[in-house]
Amino acid sequence: MSGDADLPRVLLVEDNEAIRGAFSILLEESGYRVVQAASGAEALHASAAERPHLILLDLGLPDMSGLEVARTLRAREETGSTPIVALTGRALETDAEACMAAGCTDYLTKPIDTEQLLRVLAGHLDG
């Protein structure tokens, strides 16, 4: 596992274990180091401890609203400018404006197309 420290770190915030597992494999196999969080509280903790380069944030979390997590991350110095890509699950509830107003950089609607996800990630990490 040498060299892992050089890989871009992605904080993956997703409460569903299966989806988290699938995305983790996808990201790890695509050259990212993945830090997982299953709740808003875990996300807030991990983001401070791990200093991710990018945060993938599912908006439907059990303990707090995803938008709330985004706002909190934005307000903190260490994640103030970290790209946040929101993952939204519900058709027609996807409020792009609300996502952006809460400080998200981008958003994707589930089911996420893996190629699209990787493209979006690469785009934000290059920039």
Partner: peptide, 23 residues
């Protein structure tokens, strides 16, 4: 509907991971 979609999303993503030869 929401509950039904979540596991399906996982299946699709795992499927794509397998299809793309990541494993």
């Amino acid at each position: 509907s929401h509950e039904l979609r979540t596991p399906l999303t996982a299946i699709v993503t795992y499927g794509e991971v397998l299809r793309d030869g990541l494993l």
